[in-house]
Amino acid sequence: MAAANPISKSSTAWLGPASGAVAITPDATATFMPTRGIMCSGAGTIAAKFSDTAADVSLTLTAGVVYPFSIVAVRIAGTSATGLVAFY
């Protein structure tokens, strides 16, 4: 199970800028702390699990765009985007 994000979604701090970023490595089962946003350097698709849903969703990302998605996993199967970064 993913760790809880230390900033509550109901907090006004959630609306502010991200204070950190880490690379995302797609994995078959691993989860991570809910993100405040994601970005890729190489356009493509990702199979992502949103923090409030059970099923994975396929998303098409454009390189260099920061998407305000709160996700907890990126699956290796169904992911072609490269250079994935999570913002917290």
Rank of each mutant, 00 (worst) to 15 (best):
T53L: 15
T79M: 03
D56T: 10
S19C: 12
A63K: 05
S11H: 09
L59W: 10
V57I: 10
G20Y: 09
S8M: 09
T82G: 14
K9L: 11
D56I: 08
Y88C: 05
M33Y: 02
V22W: 08
K9I: 11
W14L: 10
L84V: 03
P26M: 09
I46Q: 03
S10Q: 14
A54L: 09
P17G: 12
A28F: 05
K49I: 07
A55C: 08
A77K: 08
T60L: 14
T53P: 03
V72H: 01
I7P: 00
A2K: 07
A2N: 11
T29C: 12
P17F: 04
W14G: 11
G16C: 08
V74F: 03
M1E: 10
I7T: 13
V74P: 01
P26Q: 10
T79P: 00
P68S: 06
T35M: 06
A28L: 14
P17M: 09
N5W: 00
W14I: 07
P26N: 11
T12L: 14
S8E: 09
A4P: 13
P34H: 04
A23G: 13
I76Y: 12
S51Y: 04
D52T: 14
P26S: 13
G64L: 01
S8N: 14
C40F: 02
R36Y: 06
F69L: 08
A48G: 02
M33Q: 07
I71M: 05
G83H: 08
G16K: 04
S80G: 13
S51V: 02
G64Q: 07
M33A: 03
F87Y: 13
P68C: 06
V72A: 06
L61K: 06
G78S: 09
L59G: 12
A21H: 03
V65P: 02
T82K: 10
T60K: 12
G78T: 04
L84H: 02
C40E: 00
